[in-house]
């Protein structure tokens, strides 16, 4: 187990290293001079040169890369070019806001989705199952921005129950105004919910057809026990690994949803950094999101290993 953990952690470090290199390379080949962009087209060459010097843009790339990564490891992500603020400070509250949104989906929606999936799988081909299957197929087919906009039209423009944008005053906690969280959370949930439900259902159906479930039924134990002791535990293993694979999808959804509702999270900040060509900010955010992704994958893997006796004792 310890060896496994060390190996996995090592792999994460390796992955993040490769990703950081990739991010750095991608953003460095970007056409256009950052200093010129900051100062505007009318800047004098001297001013540009001074700024380049101050930003360290004249150093060779390995030096700049090491400076960036070294800083990132110490928790110093540098300074935003546009807003001139330390990136760590800018990211902190945004990360918190995004986490609120994501954790709702993760801890509320996914368990419900799994439950619905199990129910649908056990009652395969029943009316309820057909409804659940069709709805979920529609739900995974709707892009987040469509769901979001449709929800706005229904609950905000038409019914006027909820606000259409989810702006948060800087320095305040979105949890103090929970009504602004409802629509973004619902939107983000839609696709994940449907996807997880479908996976849980498919896995339950697969397990139901195994020989050991047949043995369980023919042992004469009540159906309830067959489902809860034999089917569900074995169906959960593959479902968990699918969920972990889809954390990336959740993060992508976050980017879109935050922009639909102007919610001040990492995704919104990321798009702003792209629009304003704020390279240090873009680099740091990308690395951060990749790190979050890698860590959540590790957690999912650990859960999987812990639940699976075959790996645990191998």
């Amino acid at each position: 187990m310890a060896r496994f953990l060390v190996l996995r952690l090592g792999l994460i470090v390796l992955t993040l290293f490769v990703i950081s290199l990739a991010i750095f390379a991608v953003t460095e080949v970007l056409p256009g001079d950052v200093a010129t962009q900051i100062l505007g087209q009318g800047a004098t060459p001297e001013n540009v040169a001074t700024l380049r010097e101050r930003l360290g843009l004249n150093d060779p790339w390995p030096v700049r890369y090491l400076g960036w990564v070294g800083g990132a490891i110490r928790g110093d992500l540098g300074e935003s070019l546009v807003q001139r603020l330390p990136i760590t400070e800018m990211v902190g509250p945004r990360l918190f806001n995004s986490m609120i949104l994501a954790s709702f989906t993760f801890f509320v929606a996914i368990p419900i989705a799994v439950a619905v999936g199990i129910w649908a799988g056990v009652h395969r081909n029943s009316f309820g199952d057909r409804v659940a299957s069709m709805t979920s197929l529609a739900a995974i087919s709707l892009p987040e921005f469509v769901t979001g906009v449709v929800l706005i039209i229904i609950f905000s423009t038409t019914l006027g129950w909820l606000p259409s944008s989810s702006l948060v005053e800087p320095g305040t906690n979105p949890l103090t105004r929970p009504q602004i969280l409802v629509l973004p959370a619902l939107t983000l949930t839609g696709v994940m919910f449907a996807y997880v439900m479908r996976m849980a259902r498919a896995n339950v159906i697969e397990v139901l057809e195994t020989n050991y479930v047949r043995s369980a039924v023919l042992k004469g134990i009540p159906m309830r026990s067959v489902i809860w002791r034999h089917v569900v535990p074995n169906a959960m293993l593959p479902t968990i690994s699918v969920i972990s694979l889809n954390v990336g999808w959740l993060l992508g959804g976050l980017i879109v949803v935050e922009n639909v509702f102007s919610y001040p999270g990492l995704g919104r900040l990321l798009l702003t950094s792209i629009q304003t060509r704020d390279m240090p900010l873009l680099q740091s955010l990308s690395l951060l999101i990749a790190a979050v992704y890698a860590i959540s994958n590790l957690l999912a893997d650990l859960t999987y290993t812990w639940l699976n006796p075959r790996i645990r004792f191998a």
């Binding site: 992955t15 953003t27 970007l30 990336g248 993060l251 992508g252 990308s286 990749a290 890698a294």
Partner: peptide
């Protein structure tokens, strides 16, 4: 191990 939308955004920005 990189969310696909993020990867796409990065590539397209470049």
């Amino acid at each position: 191990s990189f969310p696909s939308l993020l990867l796409a955004l990065l590539v397209l920005t470049t």
